[in-house]
C-alpha cells in the first residue's frame, strides 16, 4: 500500500533529456565500493537495453523510445553489490510508468455496420450500436471515443442520432417511411480525445434497412364492378378484382383479403386471392336461378392478411365496393320435382283406381308443364297406368298375391315426361312398398303401403349417466300410459325418482354422527382450565393476543404504532441484504485534464498546474462489495476498500509531474495529498480514522506554505510533535468553533448547506480540536461517536478572508494561508440523523477523501465559482482547495455546488 513515486517517461518521444530518470543509492557506499545493477524487462529482458545504469553513481537513464501499447510500464529491479558480487541490500523495485500519447486512432470493429429498424418506430428507438476501440491507454482521454454522424444518404432530413459515448444509433423521430426510403446509409466518425479537435478519427459506414409495417390500407382497382352470368351455371373465374397496396410486395402487409360484406347470403360466390398478383378471382360455386334471382348486388371489402399497424389502425374504415350481378335466363324445360314420389295403395283399390298424379314442372314458369306428354317407363308387373296428358296414375288391375310375391313386397317404377318440341325427356320415380301384413291369399286382404323416409331418423336420448347415445327405434313411454306397443322396457327418464345407494345412506349417517359429536367435544374440552391436564387444546389466556408475538420471534416489542414506521434501508439494485456498499474503482479517468477547469482558472492561473475537476469516475461495471453496518464491520470494511486506488494515485503523481514540467512559469510544488482513511486497519478504536500525508521526503520546509488545516494534518501524519511546531498563524482557527462570520459562511455555502456549527462539533476533531493552540493538545482525541464507528460525517467550510480577519491573513500570496478552504471528510453513513443537519451528498460509496491544496499565483483574478464535485459513486473523492488573493475583499461571488 505504500505510495511510491513512479518514474515516468512518455511513449513515442526521446526521453533522454530527462535523464537520469532515477537514481539509487545505498548507504553502504560510504565505506565500501558499491556496484549498482538493474535488471528486468527493458534491461536484460526484451525489449533489451531500454534502461541503463551507471554502476558507480546509480543513475538510471532511459535510452530508447518506448511504446506504451507494447509495454505500459517497466519494473526495474535495483540491486547494490559489493566487490564480490554479493547483495549489500535487499533489491528494490522501481516502477517506470509509460505515459500515453494519442498515437492510436479509433478502430471500428466493422467497416460497415448493418442494422434495421421498422418504419414508423417511435423516436429514440435503438437501431444499432457501433463499436470501436482505441489502443491508447484505457480510461484516458486518448482512448475516449466520441461518435458522430457526419453524413446520411438520402440526406433529405436527418433521421438518426448517435450517442457520442455509447455509439448507439437511435431514431430521431417517428417519420421513417419505408415507402419513401427503404434504406439509409450513414457515415459515422469516431474521434478519440472525446471528439476534440486534436483527436484522431476513423470512419465507418452504417447501412440501415427500413423494415415494412402494415401502414398502407389496400383498395380495389375499381370502385364498382358489373357482372352478368347465366342461371344454373358455375364459374371458376368469373371476374378478377385487383387490389392496390403500397406495402412491401408479397408480404402479408401487401397480400389482400377480399371478403363479402353483404349480398352473398346464398353462398353462391367465393373469392380466391392470387397472392402473387394480389388479384381476387370471383367464382360462382352455387348456381343461381333466374326465376328466383334476376339481379344481385354484392358488397365486398378488402383488408390485408396482416393486421394493420397501430399507427393507421384508427384510419382504417371498411369501404364497400358494389359488384352488380345480372342473372340471365336459360330455357330449362320440364322436370319432375321432386324426382321420386311414393304413393298409397289400399287393399280395397280396384282396377282403374287412382293412385295419384305425377306431373312435370316447367322450370321457366314454375307451373305444371303443358307441353309434355307422359308415358310409363319401368312398370314392374305392369301395375300402373299413366294418363299421357295429366300424369294421373291408376291401377291397371287389383294387386294379386302373385304380384306381391313377384315384386318382393316393393314396387319401383318410372314415369317419363316427353317434350317433343325441345326433344327432352325427364324421368320420375314411383315407389310403392307392399307390406305383407294383412295380406290374404284370396286377394281380399290389404296391401299396406307406407311412406318410407329417405333417411331413417334416429332418436337421441340422454342417459342418466350423462352419456349421450344414439339409439334406434326406442319407444317413448307416455307417462299417461298410452301410446306404447309394450314390446320394449319403458325408458326411465332421469330425475323422475331419487334412490339412495348404500354409500349415500352411510354418508347421511356419518353426517348426523358428526353433528352430534360437536357439542360433546365442546363439553369435554375445558379450554380455560388448569394446564397439565394431558393432551388437549393450548389454553389461551384472556386479554392477550395469544401465544404468537406480533413483533416477530426476537427483539423488543415495538411501541404501539411503530409497526407502521419501520425504516427499511434502501438497498441498491443488485445488492443483497447488507446495508453498506463501496465501489472499488479499477480505473481513473480525468476527463478535463488540460480541459475545462484550466480554462476556468484563466490564463494567468494555468501555471498552477491542473485540477482533477471531474473527480474520479466510476468504471462502467464497478465491483460492488458490501458491508454490514455497525461496529463489526471494521475489518471487512478494510478489506472492501483496500485502501486507495493505486491507479488513481499513480496517475495523479505522473500527470502532476508532467503538468509542471510543461508549464512555462515556474511554480513551487505545493501539492500534497491528505488522505483520510476512515477506520482502516490500525485505526485506534474511537478515532475518526487515519490520515495519511504524502509529500516531499527530503524537504519539509514546504510545510510552511501549507494552510493551517493541512499543516496540522501533515504534522500529525508525519509524526511531528505539534506541541513544538511553530504556529504561523495564532489566530487559526478561531477559538470558537462556531462560524465567526455567519453571513460569509452562508455565502460560501450558497447552495443550501446549513452552517456547520456546534451541532457536529463533537465530531469535528480532525483539525480544529487538535490544532496546536495549546500544549495540552497533542493528538486527535478520541471522540464519542454518537452514531457508532464509521458513522462520522464532518464537513467544514470556513473562510478567513475578506472582512473577517484581513490583517491576519494577508500574507505573502504565495505562501500565505488559505483564504477559502473547503474540506469535506466523508465517512460511511449508516444513520440518517446527520442528513437533517448537513446537506451532504450521500457519499456512502466513497472510501477516500483526497484533499488537494492549491496555491494560485498572486495577481490573478478571483475565480467566478468554486465548484466541488459530487462524486457520489466514486471511491475517491477529490476536494479542491484554493487560495485566492484576498485583495479585492470580494467573496460574494463564490458559490459552492454540492
Amino acid at each position: 500500500e505504500w505510495i511510491k513515486y513512479a518514474a515516468a517517461c512518455r511513449e513515442g518521444e526521446d526521453n533522454s533529456k530527462r535523464n537520469p530518470i532515477a537514481k539509487i543509492h545505498s548507504d553502504c557506499a560510504a565505506n565500501q565500493q558499491v556496484t549498482y545493477r538493474i535488471s528486468g524487462v527493458g534491461i536484460d529482458q526484451p525489449p533489451y537495453g531500454i534502461f541503463v545504469i551507471n554502476q558507480k553513481t546509480g543513475e538510471i537513464n532511459i535510452t530508447s523510445i518506448v511504446d506504451r501499447e507494447v509495454t505500459p510500464y517497466f519494473i526495474i529491479v535495483c540491486r547494490a553489490l559489493n566487490l564480490q558480487g554479493q547483495d549489500l541490500e535487499r533489491p528494490l523495485e522501481l516502477r517506470v510508468r509509460v505515459l500515453d500519447i494519442n498515437d492510436n486512432p479509433p478502430v471500428f470493429s466493422m467497416t460497415t455496420f448493418i442494422g434495421q429498424i421498422e418504419e414508423n418506430s417511435n423516436a429514440n428507438t435503438l437501431v444499432m450500436k457501433l463499436n470501436a476501440t482505441d489502443a491508447d491507454e484505457p480510461n484516458n482521454l486518448n482512448s475516449k471515443i466520441a461518435f458522430k454522424i457526419i453524413r446520411q444518404e438520402p440526406s433529405d432530413s436527418p433521421m438518426f442520432i448517435i450517442n457520442r459515448y455509447t455509439g448507439e444509433i437511435r431514431t430521431m423521430n417517428n417519420f421513417l417511411d419505408r415507402e419513401q426510403y427503404g434504406q439509409y446509409s450513414l457515415a459515422v466518425k469516431g474521434s478519440d480525445r472525446d471528439g476534440g479537435a486534436d483527436g484522431m478519427s476513423a470512419e465507418c459506414e452504417c447501412n440501415i434497412k427500413i423494415l415494412d409495417v402494415n401502414d398502407n390500407i389496400p383498395y380495389l382497382e375499381h370502385s364498382s364492378y358489373n357482372i352478368e352470368i347465366a342461371e344454373n351455371a358455375l364459374h371458376s373465374d368469373l371476374a378478377q378484382i385487383r387490389v392496390i397496396d403500397l406495402d412491401e410486395e408479397y408480404t402479408d402487409n401487401w397480400v389482400a383479403v377480399i371478403f363479402f360484406i353483404s349480398g352473398n347470403e346464398g353462398n353462391w360466390f367465393e373469392i380466391e386471392m392470387n397472392e402473387k398478383t394480389n388479384v381476387g378471382i370471383l367464382k360462382v360455386v352455387k348456381p343461381l336461378d333466374y326465376e328466383e334471382t334476376k339481379n344481385l348486388q354484392l358488397s365486398i371489402g378488402v383488408r390485408n392478411k396482416a393486421e394493420f399497424h397501430h399507427s393507421i389502425m384508427s384510419q382504417y374504415k371498411l369501404t364497400a365496393t358494389v359488384v352488380s350481378v345480372t342473372v340471365t335466363n336459360v330455357v330449362e324445360g320440364s322436370v319432375f320435382r321432386p324426382g321420386t314420389k311414393t304413393y298409397v295403395v289400399t287393399s280395397n283399390m280396384e282396377a282403374n283406381s287412382k293412385v295419384g298424379e305425377f306431373v312435370a314442372i316447367d322450370m321457366d314458369t314454375g307451373l305444371p308443364s303443358t307441353t309434355v306428354r307422359y308415358v310409363m317407363g319401368s312398370n314392374p308387373a305392369d301395375l300402373l297406368v299413366v294418363d299421357s296428358k295429366t300424369g294421373i296414375l291408376t291401377l291397371r288391375n287389383q294387386v294379386t298375391m302373385e304380384q306381391y310375391q313377384m315384386l318382393n313386397k316393393r314396387y319401383q317404377g318410372t314415369i317419363l315426361s316427353i317434350d317433343d318440341s325441345l326433344h327432352r325427356t325427364c324421368t320420375g320415380t314411383i315407389i310403392i312398398d307392399l307390406d305383407g301384413s294383412g295380406w290374404k291369399t284370396e286377394g281380399t286382404s290389404t296391401v299396406s303401403v307406407q311412406t318410407t323416409k329417405e333417411n331413417g331418423e334416429e332418436t337421441t336420448f340422454t342417459e342418466p349417466g350423462g352419456e349421450t347415445s344414439s339409439r334406434g327405434p326406442y319407444v317413448i313411454t307416455d307417462e299417461n300410459g298410452g301410446g306404447t306397443n309394450g314390446e320394449r322396457e319403458p325408458y326411465q327418464r332421469p330425475g323422475d325418482n331419487v334412490h339412495f345407494g348404500p354409500a349415500g345412506i352411510g354418508l347421511l349417517i356419518m353426517g348426523f354422527l358428526v353433528l352430534g359429536l360437536v357439542p360433546f367435544l365442546l363439553i369435554c374440552c375445558d379450554c380455560g382450565g388448569a394446564p397439565g391436564g394431558g393432551a388437549g387444546f393450548e389454553p389461551v389466556p384472556e386479554c392477550s393476543d395469544g401465544v404468537i408475538h406480533p413483533w416477530a420471534a426476537e427483539g423488543p416489542q415495538p411501541a404501539p404504532g411503530d409497526l407502521t414506521t419501520i425504516c427499511v434501508p434502501q438497498i441498491p439494485p443488485g445488492g443483497g441484504v447488507t446495508m453498506m456498499e463501496c465501489i472499488d474503482n479499477s480505473g481513473v479517468y480525468t476527463n478535463d485534464y488540460y480541459g475545462r477547469e484550466m480554462q476556468d482558472l484563466g490564463g494567468g492561473e494555468r501555471t498552477t498546474g491542473f485540477e482533477l475537476m471531474e473527480g474520479v469516475k466510476a468504471p462502467a461495471a464497478p465491483d460492488i462489495c458490501q458491508e454490514y453496518s455497525g461496529t463489526l464491520r471494521r475489518n471487512s470494511m478494510r478489506e472492501c476498500r483496500e485502501g486507495l486506488n493505486m491507479n488513481f494515485m499513480e496517475n495523479y503523481f505522473c500527470q502532476k509531474a508532467y503538468a509542471y514540467d510543461e508549464e512555462d512559469e515556474g511554480q513551487p510544488s505545493n501539492d500534497c495529498l491528505l488522505i483520510y482513511d476512515n477506520e482502516s486497519i490500525a485505526s485506534p478504536a474511537g478515532s475518526v480514522g487515519c490520515c495519511s500525508f504524502i509529500g516531499e521526503d527530503l524537504d519539509e520546509s514546504f510545510l510552511e506554505t501549507l494552510g493551517p488545516k493541512f499543516k496540522k494534518l501533515a504534522d500529525i501524519s508525519l509524526g511531528i510533535d505539534t506541541e513544538y511546531y511553530p504556529d504561523p498563524d495564532p489566530s487559526w482557527p478561531p477559538r470558537n468553533t462556531e462560524p465567526v462570520c455567519p453571513q460569509q459562511t452562508t455565502g460560501l455555502v450558497a447552495s443550501g448547506h446549513p452552517t456547520v456549527s456546534h451541532h457536529v462539533g463533537a465530531t469535528t476533531v480532525i483539525s480544529e480540536n487538535t490544532y496546536p493552540s495549546g500544549p495540552s493538545v497533542h493528538h486527535p482525541m478520541p471522540i464519542s461517536d454518537p452514531l457508532g464507528y464509521g458513522n462520522v460525517t464532518v464537513t467544514e467550510s470556513y473562510t478567513t478572508s475578506g472582512t473577517l480577519k484581513p490583517s491576519v491573513h494577508l500574507h505573502d500570496n504565495l505562501h500565505g494561508p488559505n483564504v477559502v478552504v473547503t474540506e469535506r471528510v466523508v465517512g460511511p453513513i449508516s444513520g440518517a440523523d446527520l442528513h437533517g443537519m448537513l446537506e451532504m451528498p450521500d457519499l456512502r460509496d466513497g472510501s477516500n477523501v483526497i484533499v488537494t491544496e492549491r496555491v494560485i499565483a498572486p495577481g490573478s483574478s478571483l475565480p467566478t465559482s468554486l465548484t466541488i464535485p459530487t462524486p457520489i459513486e466514486s471511491s475517491n473523492v477529490v476536494v479542491t482547495e484554493r487560495v485566492i488573493q484576498p485583495t479585492s475583499g470580494m467573496m460574494g461571488s463564490l458559490s459552492m455546488h454540492p
Binding site: E1, W2, K23, D27, C28, L92, G666, A682, C691, F693
Partner: peptide, 26 residues
C-alpha cells in the same frame, strides 16, 4: 538504507528535485 529517488521535473529554476517514496500513516 537503500533507496530509490525519482526525478521530478517541476523545478524550473534549474534545480532538480528528487522524490523518495514515503507514506506515513497514523
Amino acid at each position: 538504507e537503500f533507496q530509490i529517488q525519482v526525478r521530478d521535473y517541476n523545478a524550473k529554476n534549474g534545480t532538480i528535485k528528487w522524490h523518495s517514496s514515503r507514506r506515513q500513516k497514523r
